[in-house]
Structure formats: structure tokens, C-alpha cells
Design a protein around this nucleic acid. Structure first.
Length: 516
RNA sequence: GCGGGUAUAGCUUAAUGGUAAAGCUCCAGCCUUCCAAGCUGGCUAUGCGGGUUCGAUUCCCGCUACCCGCUCCA
């Protein structure tokens, strides 16, 4: 690693440390179960984090559901019949058999290690193994040739018989070396690692009562597709939107709240005619990119990854990942995937219930195709905080330089929209007037009243939590300096720290215009 | 899961085999006529569990959590 690389790594760690520290100090995010030592991969949102997250979800719901004629909402249960997870393929594919190499400490997925007996000149010379790749035949050949050369063995190498390690018997496994070791016997037994949290429905912990906490919210939508269709007077193309928790028993949670074991998703399953799928995939990508701009994540901090076919889920005809430049790297916020008719078809097969749509105009019956924009709520909250975080150097009255920490949230995302301060707290008239203004505003937005300390300190406190506006009631407001400024207040803006004098009667309109 | 690192107050840092210190923050009071002013007072900490020891925050072991690198990421 070069010096410059490690110093920039260090810089971004410092930035992330500052963000994590601010999140805790000001009540955005706490470690879950902190007083008991925490719980790996779980986080709690404090008062401001909860507001921020709620603002994000509410705005998504408003833009994706209420502002549109073609999307309706639902709210599915976290627990579903186990058959749902069998039909969706999660019970099978969310469970990976893992093996460790005791010698090299490497970990492999057992289904991605392939092995073959090394047969040279008709005699067996043990086994070789390689990890799955397009060139694995050739690599296996090379490994066998090495054995041949090393042992000075004569004869033809027999044709390879490559099989995944999952098919090896116990006796075979004892003789199969790890792909990156030479001696056999260093691989552990394959162990099932299930990414789904298993639980039991009902009081008896019996195999018949097994189900899982949902690893994604989408399946509830597919399973209720017919009910929504029949009760909501919608017809394709239309979408069903949902916001809710999902759970994955990640092997390795990392990067603060970015990869958690319990997380929230905002998803739409958009049902359409098969021929419209690819076009709608692109349209939804644009719709979603616009959304990120609206919440204050600029386009130039987003990366669009057109996921290549071999990395897509097998049923997907096209997938875009929307990624954000986090301090710890470019990471996915949202996947926009064209899932074809895979999910509905699977549920139709497994449930035996028809999930087709009959188009009365064309007299056609078909299983709708699906485009799915699926966003991570917690990841987007983290992106909002990372994007908003800024430190700037300001010079105070005494000419001393100091650091101002400010979260530059888009006002519509800010947890608190407006601070309300009496200039001095020991003047009852100022306090009374400030309370009056607070009452007037609070029915329309989240406001915060503060009278502690000097007014400058109060401004800085609000800067650090991203409050876009602060209103101060002073002696002008009371009319002490003439009628012209009576019943006016100063509105101080967070980013530029500029102040404007606004009449109290115009204040609500002024703020609403800037925060909606 | 492997390897490395870290763990003292809300935050940042000190110190110590013998009752843990400070700055900032926070709270209360006084003062204060617009950008972290001042004064007084106050709350709050050695992650958890073992061991060694007369005595452990300090030494040892285990666990947990967080960070970094691998690995993993439908």
C-alpha cells in the first residue's frame, strides 16, 4: 500500500469517525443494547435520527405513492408462511455451505470449490481442487501436471471429473486439499450458514412451526398481488409500494449502519406487460435518481452501475445499482431490477393459485412482469448524514479561528426545521413572545425552543444538527425601537449564517416555502 | 469466520498495582441587546466475566462491541 493511499484511507476513517461521533453525541444513532455491550450489526435511532428517517420515508411515500395515480401502498407482515420463502427460493439460496481451510484460514463456499481425482497413467494420485471460474478446467490440469512433474510420474492424465465439493463424500473430503494449500485434510466440514433468521410460530419449537424473519419486503407484495388487484381498481401498469423492516444474518456487518442485520427497505413492485419491462426499468432509474436529488444527494455523488448479466440474479433481465460515494467507498443505496415474471410465476406454481391478469381490452391473460426499485432506508439516512456533514473555519469577534460543524441537510429532510429563541431568557416579554411564535409554527413543522446560553451558542447547536432556520425574538420585536420593526423577527439561515427581518405574520409562509 | 487494532464521563484526551484528572459538552443559577462570552455550582467514566494479588482501570486469560484488511454480500 502506498503512502498516499494509506493517508487518504486515514483521512476518510477520520471523517467517518467524526460522523459516527456526531451521530452519537447529538442523538442520531446509538449502538443497540449499548449498556449490555451492544449487539453486532444492530443500531438504534435516537430522537433526531428517528425524525430524519421518518422525513425520508414520508417523503418517499409522498412522491412514490400519493403523488402518483399508478402506485398504491401496502404494509405486509414480517412473518410469512414458510412456503413463501420456499417458493421465492430464499430457503434454498439464502443458505450457503461454507468450509474453512485450517492451514491458510481462508473461507470458501463449498458449492464454489470444485474437485477432481488426479489420475495419471491409470493410477490415482489423490485429488486437486480449485475455486469456480471460467478457466478452472485448465487450472485443474495444471495442478495435476505439477503433481506429475514433482513425482516424476509417467503416463497420460485421465479426463477431469470436476464436481462441486458439496457432492464429495466424507472419505473423499479427507483426501481433497484446499484450493490454496498443497496437503489434503485442511478443509473443515461444510457448515450451513443461513442468512435468514429462523424462528418458530406458536409455543412449540417444532420443525413444523418453522419460519423466518423476512430477508426482503418484496415477497409480501407478490403474495398479495391478487388481493390488491381485486380491491384497489388498479390495472397494469401499476405498482405496489411498501416500507418495512427486513432481516439478514450477515456474516460480517460493517461500516456503521451501512450493513446491518436488521434494516428497513422502501420498495415498489411495478407490474407491467412483458414488452414494457425494459423501457420501464430505464424510466424507474430516472425517477429514482430525481428523488435522490430532491432529498439533497447530488447526481455527481451517485454512480449508476449497469449490473452485468453474470452478476445479476438469474431471473433478472436488467439491473441498475444506484451507488453513493460514502467516505468508506462507493456503495449501493438502491437496486432497480427488472425481475420479469419470475416471482409471480413461482408463487403461482407453489400455491396453485392463479396469479395472472386478464386484460379485458385485448382479451389476453398473462402473468405481469415486474420492475422493482428497492432502496435501503438506513443506507440512505447514512448517505444523507455523510452528504450533509461539513466543517468550516469561521473567525469569531475576537479574531480567533474556530471550527463550525454543520449538517447541511436539504431543509425538507432536516429533523428540526426551525429553532425559536428569545434573545435573552431573563426578559419575560421576550420569552412570552418566543413561546407564542413557537406555538404558531409547531402545528406546521418540527420546531425547537431554546433559551439556554448566548444566542450564538444556540445557533451553533442548531447548525450541528442541521436545523435550516432559527428565529430570534428581540427588543425590536417588542416595538422598543419603533413601530417599523414591531412584530418582526430575525430569521437566520444555517448555511450562509445570514439574517433577514421578517414580520411575524409572514413568517409561516416564509418558512413553509423553504422547507416543503 | 480469520488476521491486526481499539475500548477511561456525552465527546476529546490524561494518569495510576493503593479511592481516576482535565478541556469541551450538558444541567441549574447569575449575568448577557444576535454567532460556541463570563462567573458560581452540579451530574456523569475505567465495556463484560474470570484469574494473579492484601489490593487490578493498570498484569494475565476469556467474552463482547467497534474500526481496518481478508472473506462474504440473494
Amino acid at each position: 500500500m502506498s503512502a498516499s493511499k494509506s493517508s487518504s484511507d486515514n483521512a476518510r476513517n477520520v471523517l467517518m469517525d467524526k460522523i459516527v461521533s456526531l451521530c452519537k453525541r447529538r442523538g442520531f444513532v446509538f449502538q443497540s443494547s449499548e449498556i449490555y455491550g451492544g449487539l453486532n450489526g444492530c443500531w438504534d435511532y435516537g430522537p433526531l435520527g428517528a425524525e430524519l428517517k421518518k422525513n425520508l420515508k414520508d417523503y418517499w411515500w409522498r412522491r412514490m405513492v400519493r403523488d402518483r395515480d399508478d402506485v398504491v401502498g401496502m404494509d405486509g407482515a414480517i412473518l410469512q408462511n414458510r412456503s413463501v420463502w420456499q417458493a421465492s427460493g430464499h430457503e434454498k439460496t439464502f443458505s450457503d455451505p461454507l468450509v474453512d481451510c485450517k492451514e491458510t484460514k481462508a473461507r470458501f463456499r463449498a458449492d464454489q470449490i470444485f474437485y477432481t481425482p488426479a489420475i495419471i497413467g491409470g493410477d490415482s494420485h489423490g485429488y486437486v481442487s480449485i475455486t469456480e471460474s471460467p478457466s478452472m478446467e485448465e487450472e485443474a490440469q495444471q495442478k495435476i501436471r505439477k503433481i506429475q512433474k514433482k513425482g516424476g510420474i509417467k503416463g497420460e492424465i485421465a479426463p477431469l471429473d470436476l464436481k462441486p465439493l458439496t457432492e464429495a463424500t466424507a472419505e473423499e473430503r479427507a483426501q481433497i486439499p484446499s484450493p490454496n494449500a498443497t496437503e489434503p485434510g485442511t478443509l473443515t466440514e461444510p457448515r450451513q450458514f443461513n442468512l435468514m433468521f429462523k424462528t418458530y410460530v406458536g409455543p412449540v419449537e417444532d420443525d413444523k412451526n418453522v419460519t423466518y424473519l423476512r430477508p426482503e419486503t418484496a415477497q409480501a407484495i407478490f403474495v398479495q398481488f391478487k388481493n390488491v388487484l381485486e380491491t384497489s381498481r388498479v390495472k397494469p401498469p401499476f405498482g405496489i409500494a411498501q416500507i418495512g423492516k427486513a432481516f439478514r444474518n450477515e456474516i460480517n456487518p460493517r461500516n456503521f449502519t451501512f450493513r446491518s442485520r436488521e434494516f428497513e427497505q422502501m420498495e415498489i413492485e411495478y407490474f407491467c406487460r412483458p414488452e414494457d419491462g425494459m423501457r420501464l426499468l430505464d424510466e424507474w432509474l430516472e425517477t429514482r435518481l430525481k428523488f435522490y436529488e430532491e432529498i439533497g444527494i447530488p447526481r455527481d455523488k451517485l454512480h449508476i452501475l449497469d449490473v452485468p448479466e453474470k452478476e445479476r440474479a438469474h431471473y433478472s433481465k436488467g439491473t441498475y445499482d444506484i451507488e453513493y460515494e460514502f467516505p468508506f467507498g462507493v456503495q449501493e443505496l438502491e437496486g432497480v431490477a427488472y425481475r420479469t415474471d419470475y416471482d409471480l410465476t413461482k408463487h403461482q406454481e407453489h400455491s396453485g393459485k392463479p396469479l395472472e391478469y386478464f386484460d379485458p381490452n385485448t382479451k389476453e391473460k398473462f402473468i405481469p412482469h415486474v420492475v422493482e426499485p428497492s432502496a435501503g432506508v438506513d443506507r440512505t439516512v447514512l448517505a444523507l448524514i455523510c452528504q450533509a456533514f461539513d466543517e468550516e473555519t469561521v473567525t469569531n469577534d475576537k479574531g480567533k479561528e474556530e471550527t463550525r460543524t454543520v449538517l447541511r441537510f436539504a431543509p425538507r429532510m432536516a429533523p428540526i426545521k426551525c429553532g425559536v429563541f428569545p434573545l435573552l431568557k431573563n426578559k419575560p416579554e421576550l420569552v412570552a413572545k418566543a413561546r407564542e411564535v413557537q406555538e404558531m409554527l409547531r402545528v406546521h413543522m418540527n420546531v425547537f425552543y431554546d433559551e439556554g446560553g448566548a444566542v450564538g451558542r444556540r445557533y451553533r447547536r442548531q447548525d450541528e444538527i442541521g436545523t435550516p432556520f432559527c428565529v430570534t425574538i428581540d427588543f425590536d420585536t417588542l416595538g422598543e425601537n419603533g413601530d417599523e420593526t414591531k412584530d418582526t423577527v430575525t430569521v437566520r439561515e444555517r448555511d450562509a449564517m445570514t439574517q433577514e427581518r421578517i414580520a411575524i405574520k409572514d413568517l409561516l409562509g416564509y418558512l413553509l416555502e423553504r422547507i416543503s
